[in-house]
Design a protein around this nucleic acid. Structure first.
Lengths: 156, 156
DNA sequence: TCGAGTGAGTTCGTCAAGCGAACCCAGCGT
DNA sequence: ACGCTGGGTTCGCTTGACGAACTCACTCGA
């Protein structure tokens, strides 16, 4: 259990969840990755309450995962759309990971509702754990977590 | 926007979040990956309210991500500990993804609090997007999402 | 110029979920 | 018999999610 002794308070998982862990946040990002950018479209595809959606968009914007970009459809007044920033795009692997798990364990007929393909070669895409030594790992068992020295807590 | 037209109701991301998206669930799993198995240890390292923790553990158990295993420390009565099942272990990439994002954007001094190393070769481990053609992708832009035919919605 | 329509957002009342503290209960050692 | 301890429940309170109704800014057609 010694491996468990490190400071959780600055854990990156917790930190990330503090930003995108509220209800709907990750689903908003999913839609963003699918190209949905307008409030009304988000509201319709997600079915989230308007007030919640407003709030989630606001926090995603001021956390820098989305940015509001003005646009003007013809015959309409100027509005804003929400676009992924680099910071937002970088959450893609997390969404893919959640999706792959769902595909494996939740898909009804073993058929994934949405498939990801390499834009260049058309082959299916998935996540892999790799190391700098060039090995491809098979799962969590092959990983050893190492707390950074500066954040080890004192042993009891 | 055509790419956005598919049935969200069976989206794997949403499905997965329905299981592990509540507060604390993913953090419980993080602890599990670090080897924490007992209720009291979870409660202490997480700081979650007991009632919530009880509830999260119960749902994780009956969703099959954890299993209760009886154990008996000497001089104590028999108790249960919570261990990851295969289904639970398979969520590892999702946690790693969240962690990597947090390491990149949240780490104070650019120093990740916890490092993952390959147990065999000791090299740092990370997630990568790869395709069956053997290419390593650089991010979401190189991916094309393809709704499975059976779940396309009718065009409006 | 007026009035209806629409996208985006706020407000409101209700209901569910998270919270800390207190309480409970089984089985162990003394 | 008693108290301790790990795991869990109960309780009141606060926070958050919810859907419906309301607002506001702007465009269009009349």
């Amino acid at each position: 259990m010694s491996e468990a002794r490190w400071d959780r308070s600055r854990c990156s998982v917790a930190g990330t969840l503090a930003i995108v862990g509220e209800k709907w946040s990750l689903l908003v990002l999913r839609e963003a990755f699918l190209g949905v950018r307008r409030f009304a479209d988000l509201q319709r595809t997600l079915g989230a309450p308007r007030a919640v959606l407003t709030d989630r968009l606001a926090t995603l914007v001021d956390q820098g995962l989305l940015r509001r970009v003005p646009y003007q459809a013809e015959g309409e007044r100027q509005r804003h759309e929400y676009r992924l920033t680099r910071k937002g795009v970088d959450l893609y692997p997390a969404l893919v990971a959640l999706m792959e798990w769902g595909d494996r364990y939740l898909a009804e007929d073993g058929v994934a509702p949405l498939e990801l393909r390499h834009r260049d070669c058309g082959e299916p895409v998935h996540l892999a754990l790799v190391c700098d030594g060039g090995h491809r790992l098979d799962g969590a068992r092959e990983v050893r977590p190492v707390p950074h020295p500066s954040v080890r807590t004192a042993e009891a």
